[in-house]
Design a protein around this nucleic acid. Structure first.
Length: 389
RNA sequence: CCAGGGGUGGCGGAGUGGCCAAUCGCAAUAGACUGUAAAUCUAUCGGGCUUGCCCUACGGGGGUUCGAAUCCCUCCCCCUGGA
């Protein structure tokens, strides 16, 4: 049985612990993204050796790629991924409502690179590759129609069997109009009620998190935090976009975390730039997930104490990535020049090793964040990282 | 020595009279990456500036032509068969 226990101190910045019968994680923690139940560049039999205690998989991808039957056959996502003692979340597919829908139509992600009012005005809320109705969302995958709704997403997530499940939502874009974001948010609230209803009977085994939306708008964010925060769920996701000025993310997240029940954990969905992690932890966020460590590793970007290092600029060095790093690449002494040779040859060892390294970096950083909170030195640590990130 | 096929920008490889400073790929260089349409994407990639033009360039030299990487002659080099 997976009965949940969550201890979150009632302070704004706090460490915490989330426990089930088979696993526990200390917070703050960031989940490594294993979209279809696998990391992009590592086989599942090495996941148990990773330093990360938290992973997240995706309902849309495991569903469309027909992985869910395999997960069920394996006896659940923990067995499928061969990490029985780790914490796993599943996302609802709500992000794909955006990324494969309006996001694809606009070519812009959920975080804008710079303030861009002209982009906002010129985009049409209706330019969407998905068909979103009150009842459900219609996708096209591989030329075939696929449907997701709160009920379908819950059913699929029950089959996946992760510790934490996300309610089915719509992630809105910074380019959407405020009116669209408001309507979408209200629909996401109604979808939350349906998700909760569809989750009845499973509460003991899997924790369903409600998701706060509202874009960059203070009134909408606060309204969403009040509505979602009042629901009888064990935790919360914070999704959507957060505005595009320098301190926007922390500010926007802060509106929400001040309202959400302080004893329940908050997972900031899809956020993971280092500055953003620190800003969000400061606002009382406990959980994160982000593709940055794994994706950028494949894109030859290395995370180190000296900052982000682009391998292209260091490819001539016959030195390991970083001294005193516990990852397999650094322990085995794999050199930058060797990594580059492998990248050029499309040898998968390259991205495997860089992925191992970046995962180690993020795991170490999250541990340092926890320790710094315990010791009252969070701001100090934030400044240290802020110098290079 | 004979027959045939080639020599193009750092590399591979298109182009076979003007639209060619030369498609494309690789490498190089500079960026990007936030609930993974992403081992991806974008930009630059002979030199000069007034960014439109000028200069130098398709093995070397010569020629034909208004015009040649493209046609002709010649020399050099490489590959494949045959003596």
């Amino acid at each position: 049985m997976m009965k949940f226990q969550i201890q979150r101190k009632r302070k704004k910045i706090s460490t915490g612990i989330i426990t089930t019968s088979n696993s526990s994680i200390q917070t703050p923690e960031l989940a490594i993204v294993a979209t279809d139940g696998q990391l992009r560049s590592l086989p599942n039999d090495v996941l148990k050796d990773l330093p990360s205690p938290y992973f997240i998989v995706n309902t849309y991808h495991t569903y469309t790629k027909e992985i869910i039957p395999k997960i069920e056959k394996a006896g659940g996502i923990h067995s499928f991924m061969q990490i029985p003692d780790r914490f796993i979340a599943s996302d609802s597919g709500g992000f794909q409502v955006f990324s494969l829908g309006f996001g694809r139509g606009s070519g812009i992600g959920k975080i804008l690179p710079t303030a861009s009012d002209s982009l906002r005005i010129s985009h049409d809320d209706n330019k969407n590759f998905n068909k979103i109705t009150e009842n459900r969302v219609e996708f096209e995958f591989d030329g075939k129609p696929k449907i997701l709704s709160p009920e379908i997403s819950m059913d699929l997530q029950h089959k996946i069997g992760a510790n934490i499940m996300m309610a089915f939502d719509e992630c809105t874009s910074p380019l959407n109009s405020k009116e669209y974001i408001k309507n979408s948010m209200e629909r996401t609230h109604r979808w939350l009620d349906r998700s909760i209803e569809a989750h009845k009977g499973f509460e003991e085994n899997q924790a369903l998190f409600g998701i706060v939306q509202g874009g960059e708008y203070e009134d909408l964010r606060k309204e969403s935090a009040r509505v979602v925060g009042s629901k009888d769920v064990p935790g919360f996701g914070i999704g959507g976009s957060f505005g595009d000025f320098q301190e926007a993310l922390g500010t926007t997240v802060g509106w929400v975390t001040k309202i959400l029940p302080p004893e329940k954990p908050r997972h900031l969905l899809g956020i993971g730039k280092i500055r953003d992690v620190f800003a969000a932890v400061e606002q009382g966020v406990d959980l994160f997930d982000c593709v940055i460590p794994t994706r950028e590793a494949r894109h030859r970007m290395l995370y180190t104490k000296k900052g982000r290092l682009y391998l292209r600029k260091l490819k001539h060095l016959d030195e390991p990535i970083e001294k005193n790093c516990a990852c397999r690449a650094c322990v085995e002494g794999v050199t930058m020049s060797q990594l580059w040779t492998w990248f050029l040859a499309h040898d998968l060892r390259a991205s495997a090793y860089t992925t191992l390294h970046n995962i180690q970096f993020y795991a170490d950083m999250m541990r340092e964040i926890r320790e710094s909170i315990e010791m009252g030195k969070f701001e100090e640590l934030r400044e240290t990282y802020g110098k290079v990130y």
